[in-house]
Amino acid sequence: MNGPASASVPNSVGSAAPAFRPGAVQVAAPLLGGGLVGIASAYVLTAATGTRIPVGELWTWVLTAVLAGVVVPVLSPQYRVELGADFLVLHGGRRRDIAWRDIIGLEVRKTVGVRTVVVHVSDGRRIPLRAPMSFLDRRFDDKARLLVDWWTARRGGPDRV
């Protein structure tokens, strides 16, 4: 689901750097679920007040939620995290390079049952990564371990060994 996680050794030369990206289902499922819950809530509230929603209008709402669940993952920015030799590279609305030596810690944080990786930077910022995430991804632990291994191998910077 959540992008490829190669089993490359952090110090291997010539191998492609791993990259993580959220899968389409990981993006669409919360949106679709939220839309359908909203529609069900609106239907229940209107029924409780004695107002009836025509079946055609209800189907329009449902189809709109389903269409949004399909279109948004396709049209949204392509978020990904790349593990480079000197930088952790975040792609999304814009590109952000974070030098490995500037990262003081990596933390796996659980929010609403979904685990993500949070990067702690030396200037005090905490940057949650959109990928990898445990939602619908059985390989999350392997990907998080790979990320920590890359950071551990490179955090001293090019000057230190």
Rank of each mutant, 00 (worst) to 15 (best):
Pro132Asp: 07
Thr64Arg: 02
Val121Thr: 12
Gly84Glu: 02
Lys110Asn: 11
Trp100Val: 07
Val13Leu: 13
Val55Glu: 14
Tyr79Ser: 04
Ala48His: 02
Gly14Met: 04
Leu83His: 00
Ser76Gly: 10
Pro158Ser: 14
Pro22Asn: 06
Leu32Gly: 07
Pro158Trp: 13
Phe87Tyr: 13
Trp61Tyr: 08
Asp97Arg: 15
Arg125Pro: 03
Arg155Thr: 10
Val71Gly: 00
Val9Tyr: 12
Pro22Thr: 03
Thr111Ala: 14
Pro4Cys: 08
Gly69Pro: 01
Ala65Pro: 02
Gly56Ala: 11
Glu107Ser: 08
Pro22Ser: 05
Val66Asn: 00
Gly34Cys: 06
Val148Asp: 15
Val9Ile: 13
Ala65Glu: 00
Gly124Phe: 06
Ser8Arg: 12
His91Asp: 13
Gly33His: 06
Leu88Pro: 02
Gly113Cys: 11
Ala144Glu: 00
Gly157Cys: 12
Met1Leu: 09
Pro128Arg: 07
Ala29Val: 11
Ser41Cys: 12
Val117Glu: 01
Ala85Pro: 03
Arg96Glu: 10
Gly33Arg: 03
Thr152Asp: 14
Asn2Trp: 04
Arg138Lys: 14
Ile53Val: 15
Ala99Ser: 11
Ile127Met: 10
Val9Met: 09
Asp102Phe: 00
Ala68Glu: 00
Thr60Gly: 12
Gly105His: 07
Leu83Lys: 00
Asp159Val: 15
Trp59Ala: 11
Phe140Lys: 05
Arg109Asn: 12
Met133Asp: 05
Ile98Tyr: 08
Trp150Tyr: 15
Ala42Arg: 09
Arg21Phe: 11
Ala131Asn: 09
Thr60Phe: 11
Val13Ala: 14
Pro10His: 08
Leu36Lys: 07
Thr49Ile: 06
Ser134Arg: 03
Ala7Phe: 10
Pro54Cys: 07
